[in-house]
Design a protein around this nucleic acid. Sequence first.
DNA 1: TCCTCCATGTAATCGGTTACATGATTCG
DNA 2: CGAATCATGTAACCGATTACATGGAGGA
Lengths: 185, 185
Amino acid sequence: MSSIRYAMLTLLAREPLSGYDIKQQMNSRMGPFWKAGSNQVYPELAKMEEEGLALLHSVEQNDHRPARKVYAITERGRQELIRWTIEPTEPETMKDEFLLKAYNSWLVESADMLPRFEEKQKEHEKKLAVYSEKLNELNQILDPLNPRDPLLSSISVVEFGVEYEKLYIKWCQQVIEKLRKQEAN
Amino acid sequence: MSSIRYAMLTLLAREPLSGYDIKQQMNSRMGPFWKAGSNQVYPELAKMEEEGLALLHSVEQNDHRPARKVYAITERGRQELIRWTIEPTEPETMKDEFLLKAYNSWLVESADMLPRFEEKQKEHEKKLAVYSEKLNELNQILDPLNPRDPLLSSISVVEFGVEYEKLYIKWCQQVIEKLRKQEAN
DNA sequence: TCCTCCATGTAATCGGTTACATGATTCG
DNA sequence: CGAATCATGTAACCGATTACATGGAGGA
């Protein structure tokens, strides 16, 4: 498995990046579906270099700051990533803490639960706004003549994100309505 | 955090259960959003008893088999679960390996990727069938006169599951169409 | 003045997965 | 005849989170 290394190869397959870049992109661009901290990224990059999946592409030296070490994917890395990509994937369990709490709604007063659903709705409305904007950007810079444009894949994934956020918002609204009716009794 | 203990309290709040029951229910009833193995359940149950969140309710002795130890939630456990339930929840990242692979579609031949999307679609169609049936069952045994029926909460969560599966299926279909058009060129 | 950003990394800890162990019964 | 189910638990490992460490530049 080792998950993180394929997430890193995924980013390196598009452009050479430093460990710091990888961390940043995971927590923004890939934000909806993957995350990582520096603790994972740097040691993993070193291992990947040892195994010939990535190599040091350039080192930008800034005074009074650690050298910026940019890595590029190797042909072996690309092949390994392709091999993994076309391999079947195990079904996933979505581990959503808030759903677990929703499952406990019956235990608590509607008045205590309503604010939590309203918060969640707003949180997902914000995410929806971010993904929608991202989607617009991607569609604008997309090269419509190139059927191999990486952005086509990006768009599909962000579209998933948009639909997911819409679903979450709709669900929150439905539950809020139910709780309000219950409260009225 | 310690996640698992609240998932276990969530189940114990509805009825007394053995460690084995908890494990089973997590991988079926709660399947969509939580999971656990025996390694976690048994030691955690012991800790919860020590801390007074659960207590040994009864022991059913069967010959040639380990005694079935049934635990019940205590008032302290219930209060702790309620406290956690009405507490705000941090935003979650959905870590879906298949979305990561979809993000790499541009790297591979459509012919290699299409079967993976078709598989995923079928997988989620099966899950949808299971959740839909579950939803029917729940609606039938629900007591419509009791606004505190735990099943109301169950229904909300299963409804989320149903909508999620529908979304996943629709998304797979869209991507499949795109890949087919691309292949035709 | 204090916080955040850049940019590398390490250390301690925690939660979760896989595998192991026992042993009778029931189902295909 | 072999696999799965019931029912408890333990041990080894692995991946991920949180915190720590350095240190100058720029903004609130």
